[in-house]
């Protein structure tokens, strides 16, 4: 936030310097090192042109569809579960330990089970993304409910609010920024998971593109795929940041 206040002119010098430094270092390194190991800017640009006119959009699209499907399904389970756990003590105490444990299982460790259970097609990848999403969203939504400011509940109760009003007017709005924060982190993890999964078992997607390019030593292609990943991650993260700020999530704590 504090960065937003800076003027463009102030940023141009340090940013330009860094970018210039990086690119010259990159060019220099690629001339000294075998370009098969470390492609220079020109090689990467040619790879980009080749991929852009070819399969890049298709690979990106496949990965994005997998991520979004799993992410939406995971959130659809995680948000209500988090609301229930945050609001009803018995449910929280029943499930808290279990959810907390599952949260620490790296989703990619489930890949062998996912393939055995759901085959090598789309379903196993979507399952892995659901697994990456659901626990983080649950835990953060639950946090949002659990840390509702007590006086806000009391204030509406003193206006005649029943349990449903308390939920609708206080608990739900308080939980939204937390749920969004969970979703934002989950989205980052979903990118990691899908890339790994596609590298291991897939015939399409950005992860597949990376792995395929490695096997054929097309290092220029690898660079292009990495940049595409970075841009996608950046874009989705911004969307969530804007949403969180919109819903007043200044006090959100990452769990």
């Amino acid at each position: 936030m504090r960065r937003a206040a800076w003027k463009v002119s102030e940023l141009a010098l340090p940013y330009g310097l860094t970018v210039l430094l990086l690119v010259s270092l990159w060019e220099f390194a690629s001339r000294r090192i075998n370009p098969l190991f470390f492609p220079g800017p020109t090689t990467v640009w040619r790879s980009f042109l080749a991929l852009a006119s070819g399969d890049l959009a298709a690979h990106v699209g496949v990965s994005l569809v997998r991520i979004l499907t799993g992410f939406l399904l995971g959130s659809l389970v995680g948000i209500p579960l988090g609301l229930l756990m945050g609001g009803i003590p018995v449910i929280r105490r029943l499930l808290d330990g279990t959810v907390e444990f599952f949260r620490f299982i790296p989703p990619i460790a489930m890949i062998v089970l996912a393939v055995v259970w759901f085959g090598t097609g789309e379903a196993s990848k979507v399952f892995l993304i659901i697994f990456s999403t659901v626990f983080l969203v649950t835990v953060n939504t639950e946090d949002g409910v659990y840390h509702v400011v007590r006086n806000r509940i009391r204030a509406v109760q003193a206006m005649g609010a029943g349990p449903w009003d308390v939920f609708r007017l206080v608990i739900l709005p308080s939980a939204v920024p937390h749920a969004l924060t969970g979703m934002r982190i989950a989205m980052g993890n979903a990118f990691s998971t899908i890339v790994s999964a596609e590298m291991i078992v897939a015939d399409r997607g950005i992860g597949f593109l990376l792995q395929d390019s490695r096997l054929f030593l097309r290092t220029g292609h690898i660079f292009v795929a990495l940049v595409a990943l970075g841009l996608l991650g950046f874009a989705t993260d911004r969307v969530f940041r804007i949403l969180i700020a919109r819903f007043g999530g200044e006090y959100v704590v990452v769990r």
Binding site: P14, Y15, V195, S196, M199, T219, L229, L232
Partner: peptide, 23 residues
């Protein structure tokens, strides 16, 4: 300010995607 372009760019590239280069 000098580090920002680097961190802002690389933090969105999942580590595992770099496995191909690491190898």
């Amino acid at each position: 300010r000098m580090m920002e372009p680097i961190t802002e760019f690389f933090r969105f590239i999942p580590a595992i995607a770099l496995v191909v280069f690491a190898l």
